[in-house]
Every structure is written in C-alpha cells, then in structure tokens.
C-alpha cells in the first residue's frame, strides 16, 4: 500500500465528496462555456471591421454584462445551495460520533461509545463503510481546519467552539486528511490517515482501541520501564500503565497505527527511532523534546515496546 494515500477531492469515496466533485465539474464546464463565449465575442469585435450596429451593441452589453451573469450566478447559487441541506444534515441518531480536536500539530481523537465512555486515540480515524458518521470538531490552541478531500467538505476548527461535520464514506480504502488552515511552523506536517473498512473490521478495531494496553513480551518490558522512567508518561497516556499524561497523543495502541508524527512518516522501527532521538529534524517546531540522551539499546527497547502496543 502506498504510504501517502489519496488526497484528491476528485477521487471521491464519500457521499459529500461526490456531490462536491459534481459541483466542481458543473462549474468547470459552465466556466469553460462562458469563457469561450466571452473570448469569441471579443475576437468578433476585433475582427469584424466598421461601425457595429448601436442597438445590437447596447443589447449585447446589457444582456452579456448584466442579464447573463445574473441568470448564470443565480442558477449556480441555487444549484449549490440546494446541495447544502443534504451536506449539512447531521448523521441520524445512533450514528457513530467522533470528536476531533486540532492541536498544534496533531489530532486528538475521541470515539464516543454507546455506553457513554470516550475512547481516545490520535492521528488515525477508522470509519465503517456506507454509514454516516458525525464529527464534532474543536481546537485546543489556534484555528485549524479538518479536511478529508476524498470523503467530504472542509470545516474550520475554532478554539472555544464546536463545529460539526458528517462524513459518509462509500468505498473501502485509506484516505488522507489534512489541516487546511495555516496554523504555524509544522502546519504542512499536520495530517492524518482515514481508514474506511467493513463494519466487522471496524467493530474489531474499535473494540481493540477501547481495551487497555496489550500484554507485551519480556524484551518490550525493558522498554516499558524506560518509557516510565524517562518521563514520557508526563505527556503521553498508555492506558493500563502508569503513563497518564494528557499533553501529547495517547499511545495505548500506538503500534496499530499506520504512521507517526501526524502522518509524517510510516510507522516502523527505524522511523520511530529517528522520531524519538531527532524529533525536531523530522518535524520542526513540535512540542515533544528530542530524547538525545537515550542510549542505543534503550532506544531499541523503547521502540520495540511502542511497536508492540497493537
């Protein structure tokens, strides 16, 4: 699988994205037609010699300059607005609700469970195919924007208020979401993966995300001690261990994620090692300090531990 998944509004895989793509094509074709007419008239005016008929000219100016744009724009507006109620309609009662908060420069994600609990994860969203899902969008610092071009529209995340968005994916696959509002140094490295899968796979994934950290091998136990002793738990949570920090991403099932650093690098041992030891070379500006002082074997154990958190 390609590491960078589709991030094109034209490669639509959701109800909202499909109508937005339709709107795009209508606009594009209409725009081309108008362009041809305007340029054609201009050429005509230049090429045909002599005085043009006064009456016809006046009609052309009024018709082409005022009447025609009014009709076209009204039609387009009507067409565009007609799409809105559908796009804006909340997902039906009982749909999955996902809270996403933009944090410089990553995504804090909570799945609301039927029992009222919230399951926290980060930087990766799983969705069941052919089901509408309701998003609650917030920001913990500055203005961000939540956008999965293949699945739907773009919505701002404002500090101090909650915006909403419905996504209704129609095709299984991996898609890329991005922050679409400049939010500072690492804005371009603030992305996330959206995995659309069958209801069974999704249920299995959510059940596992809701569980505590998995039991780990003896080798990884050394890594767990380093994680605890180096103070990683002051920022990160790993549910089921002493790590209960709330500043950074929850890492309870870190090993199950596709990527690290908010979809900056594929999640593998080499990249994770680099991330921990040279954080700011990978992603300049992040809050996480680089842990340069960890010895090689300590790093190895730590990476192994995090990788086993499936």
């Amino acid at each position: 699988m390609n590491f960078v998944p589709s991030q094109s509004a034209l490669d639509h895989a959701g109800v909202g994205a499909e109508s937005i793509a339709g709107l795009f094509w209508v606009m594009l074709i209409g725009g081309c037609l108008i362009w041809l007419i305007v340029v054609g008239l201009a050429v005509y005016a230049i090429v045909v010699p002599g005085q043009h008929d006064q009456k016809r000219t006046r009609m052309l100016v009024i018709g082409g300059g005022a009447v025609f744009p009014t009709i076209v724009l009204t039609a387009l507006l009507t067409y565009g607005l007609a799409m809105l109620p559908d796009l804006q309609r909340p997902a039906p009662e009982g749909s999955q609700v996902i809270e996403v908060a933009g944090v410089r420069w990553w995504w804090r994600i909570h799945y609301r469970m039927p029992d009222g609990n919230r399951v926290e994860t980060a930087n990766e969203i799983h969705l069941p195919v052919n089901e509408p899902v309701e998003f609650k969008l917030k920001s913990e610092d500055v203005i961000h924007a939540f956008w999965v071009p293949s699945l739907g529209g773009k919505v701002d995340m404002m500090p101090g208020r909650e915006n909403r968005l419905k996504l209704h994916p129609t095709r299984v696959g991996v898609y890329r979401g991005v922050c679409a509002e400049y939010c500072g140094e690492a804005h371009t490295q603030m992305a996330f993966d959206v995995i659309v899968e069958s209801r069974e796979d999704y249920d299995e994934w959510l059940r596992q995300q809701a569980s505590l950290a998995v039991a780990i091998s003896d080798e990884a136990e050394a890594g767990r001690k380093i994680f605890a002793g180096s103070g990683c738990g002051a920022c990160h949570s790993i549910r089921g261990t002493s790590a209960d920090g709330v500043v950074g991403p929850d890492l309870t099932h870190f090993g199950s994620r596709r990527s690290i650093g908010a979809s900056v690098l594929p999640n593998n041992a080499d990249n994770l090692t680099r991330w921990i030891a040279e954080t700011h070379r990978v992603k300049s500006g992040v809050e996480m300090p680089a842990f340069e002082t960890l010895a090689e074997d300590e790093l190895r154990a730590l990476v192994r531990y995090l990788g086993e958190l499936k």
Binding site: A228, G229, S230, V247
Partner: peptide, 19 residues
Amino acid sequence: GDRGRKIPSCQKCHGPDAE
C-alpha cells in the same frame, strides 16, 4: 501538568513516587 497550556507533569521525572 496543564493540558490547555501543554505543560507536562513534573512528577513523572522528578517524583514523588515516580516509577
């Protein structure tokens, strides 16, 4: 610590009772 201001807790590195 303080989540809103991204201040980690001191305790995990400096005690008391750090694991």
